[in-house]
Design a protein around this nucleic acid. Structure first.
Lengths: 197, 197
DNA sequence: TGCGCTAATGTCGCAAATGTCATTATGGTG
DNA sequence: CACCATAATGACATTTGCGACATTAGCGCA
């Protein structure tokens, strides 16, 4: 498990060490303390989550650790026909896919499989899509997952999804080619970079 | 009995070997010395206790082992007051707790934290509790999680939960002592041992 | 634009914790 | 027994945490 000291982080963020300590104390940056005098350590995961949360560009030498199952896509949709249709298209294009039809499965698969991208139906019964997006973005380990929102909602609702952290959206109905194009575009950007800005 | 050398621990904590030795010398980390020159060994138990004491994240390959004697509990309930009430009771009894108010969070936390036990409100909006139970039971890695169903539903509904895989249920309203008693009983059985293979 | 306020960040110095290095010794393996 | 990876140790170099205080940055407001 790789960790960073306050000094490391200070250098990465080009900020004073004192400031990093304050971030940790305030809980902005999740860390833990070593026995002795309580020197701080921050896990790679937590640091990356922090960087993403604040749209701070990821330093080059951290990029690689984010690479996870770059070929895997999680499809979150409660409507089986739609989910399967999406799956068919993506499989045809060579992606590994998994389906999740409810929030619980989606959450656990996301953590377990660490897919590079998830498609998310904003309006699933019992799930607040915006909450899901926010949660993903603030959770170390999965925060880098690119999120493609798929929904029949109006533009402004979709725009809101972008604001809380989605990377792109696709309005229903859409053509298979549009779906593929979106996904390919999202995946070609270097790992770990924030897409929406 | 599995033990770790200072070097092992140094790697796990991403810290210098010298530091580990100092921790042991100062009694921060409980270890014992081999006859010869006094090489140190630390039992798994002592190491895990140490990690918990300092809130240091537990390395993945210790997770599996840890689950068995872990005292982490995940509380899944959308009603914040109830969830917090349960949390208060459990914390008071010395358990580490985490809350999840929707399915997505619950699923991801379950996989991530691997708690020994989860309390589950059967009737959360948008989540089919039975589905959750079934899913947990059939998913490697989390299938051993003990599930305590908490609900105001009638007996036969709760019975059904047991049939699909819950370990016990508690009918609302319940006394704090009942809650604790149930949980202690569930955790004392060595169920988690049979888990991962 | 300039003013004033507040919160965030930077600076400095010291003591404590941690890292580094070279050297010597151990434990495990064949 | 020889060999090698690993561990312990002392001496010394760096880094870190923290308190106290100085400087900014952001923001509303006139």
């Amino acid at each position: 498990m790789k960790t960073f000291s306050t000094g490391d982080i200070a250098k990465y963020c080009d900020v004073n060490l004192r400031t990093v300590i304050r971030w940790i104390d305030k809980g902005e940056l999740e860390g833990f303390k070593l026995p002795g005098r309580g020197n701080n350590r921050v896990t790679e995961e937590a640091f990356l989550a922090f960087l993403h949360r604040h749209n701070i560009p990821v330093p080059d030498d951290l990029r690689e650790v984010e690479v996870v199952n770059s070929n895997r896509i999680l499809i979150v949709d409660d409507e089986v026909q739609i989910a399967k249709a999406i799956q068919r298209v993506l499989r045809g294009a060579g992606y590994e896919t998994a389906l999740a039809q409810d929030g619980f499965r989606a959450g656990s698969r996301l953590v377990k499989d660490k897919p590079a991208l998830m498609t998310l139906d904003l309006s699933m019964p019992g799930i607040d899509g915006y909450e899901v997006i926010k949660f993903v973005r603030e959770t170390p380990g999965i925060c880098h997952t690119r999120i493609l929102v798929i929904s029949a909602l109006e533009d402004d609702k979709l725009q809101e999804a972008l604001e809380v952290g989605a990377d792109a959206y696709l309005q229903k109905p859409f053509a298979n080619s549009e779906l593929l194009a979106s996904i390919e575009k999202m995946l070609e950007s270097p790992q770990g970079l924030i897409v929406n800005n």
